[in-house]
Amino acid sequence: MSPDAGGPPAPDDFASRVVAVVESIPPGHVMTYGSVAAALGSRASRGVGQVMAYAGADLPWWRVVRASGHAPLDHEQRALEMYRVEGTPLLWSRTGAFRVDLERASHRP
């Protein structure tokens, strides 16, 4: 029912659109929070982060990375496992830290 008809508001359109974009990212590829927002015609990268915080467990969350190419904060080890399974291109530092090679792995819907 539409809000104009006096019924309950429609589900959060932004959240459902974020979910659709994240689900479209193919294995071995990533998008940044900002690029997910941009794909929706928005600049709300933090809003994308909020959606991922609530719905991310049911999504390929490791495919959404920070602008630097680093995995989601506090989920680096699990993300690394998924990147290895999917063959996601990675860059390694001398200290053993990694990040996704955005030049090679970025998905552009």
Rank of each mutant, 00 (worst) to 15 (best):
G7D: 08
A79F: 01
F14S: 05
G47Y: 15
V30W: 00
L91E: 13
R104P: 14
V36S: 00
W62L: 01
V19D: 03
W92L: 11
V100A: 09
E81I: 11
E86S: 02
G49W: 07
D12M: 07
V65A: 02
D4P: 03
R43T: 14
R43H: 09
G69I: 02
A10V: 12
G41A: 13
R104I: 12
V65C: 02
S42C: 06
R46N: 15
A53H: 12
P89D: 07
R46K: 15
G56R: 01
S68W: 06
A38T: 07
D58A: 14
G69R: 02
M52R: 11
P27I: 14
M52N: 12
V48W: 10
L73V: 14
V100Y: 08
I25P: 05
A105Y: 01
S42G: 05
E103T: 15
Y54C: 04
G34Y: 12
V51K: 03
A44P: 11
G34C: 07
M31D: 01
R43M: 10
A20R: 13
W62Q: 03
L102A: 13
V19Y: 06
A39D: 09
L102D: 12
M82T: 13
T32H: 06
Q77T: 15
A97I: 04
R66Q: 13
V21Q: 05
V30Y: 00
R63W: 00
P3G: 04
E81H: 09
G7Y: 12
D58G: 14
L73K: 14
D12P: 08
G28R: 06
S45V: 05
L91K: 12
V48L: 08
V36A: 01
S93D: 06
G41L: 15
Y83W: 13
S45P: 08
G41F: 15
H107T: 04
G56E: 01
P72H: 02
P89F: 09
D74P: 00
E23W: 11
W61K: 04
E86C: 02
P89T: 05
P3N: 03
D13L: 13
L59H: 00
A53I: 06
P109K: 04
A67W: 11
H29A: 13
V30I: 03
P109M: 06
G28V: 02
P3Q: 04
H29D: 10
D74G: 03
R94C: 11
